[in-house]
């Protein structure tokens, strides 16, 4: 079992669960469950020595955030996916290439295993951003 880290490109986008949970309400467990996760392929999971549901730390130059790992067999090696929402955006820079649009689709990140580590709730994350952390 490895406990190292992997470098991948993370892309973000919609999922059905994220859409449903968003409609239910953002301040719900459903929403947190739908967006505080990182999908990755089996090779990436093996490299990290983790299992479906373990916590991982996703890190960019801007900061890091804990999310739940989710196996997605269809994701190629070197690519991970985080549903669009506050957990992905916490890692994202604001550069828009002068278009207004940040680079939601390709973020270089490092993923590290953190089995058992706590995942912040949506409210805690909002509070953190309010305090500018």
């Amino acid at each position: 079992m490895s406990s190292g880290s992997v470098k991948v490109i993370v892309t973000s986008g919609r999922t059905l669960n994220q859409g449903r949970a968003m409609e239910k309400g953002k301040i719900t467990q459903d929403y947190e469950d739908a967006v505080a996760l990182c999908e990755m392929g089996s090779t990436t999971m093996e490299a990290l020595g983790i299992e479906n549901g373990d916590t991982v730390i996703v890190k960019t130059g801007l900061g890091k955030i804990n999310v739940k790992a989710k196996l997605n067999k269809n994701l190629p090696e070197g690519m991970a996916f985080i549903p669009c929402g506050p957990y992905f955006n916490y890692l994202l820079d604001s550069y828009t290439q002068c278009t207004g649009m940040p680079g939601f689709k390709s973020l270089e990140v490092t993923i590290t295993a953190a089995r058992g580590a706590k995942i912040q709730t949506v409210e805690e994350l909002t509070q953190k951003m309010k305090e500018g952390i």
Binding site: G25, K26, I27, L62, G63, C84, G85, P86, N89, Y90, L91, L92, D93, S94, P102, V122, E123, T126, Q127, M129, K130, G132
Partner: peptide, 28 residues
């Protein structure tokens, strides 16, 4: 919920008026 962190950081430092049917992250 949908803006990058630096944009949210400024938003958090100014008065915000939020009109929405539901509680969302901006309402916090």
């Amino acid at each position: 919920a949908h803006f990058p962190r630096a944009a949210v950081a400024h938003l958090a430092s100014i008065p915000v008026i939020n009109i929405d049917p539901k509680f969302n992250m901006t309402s916090q």
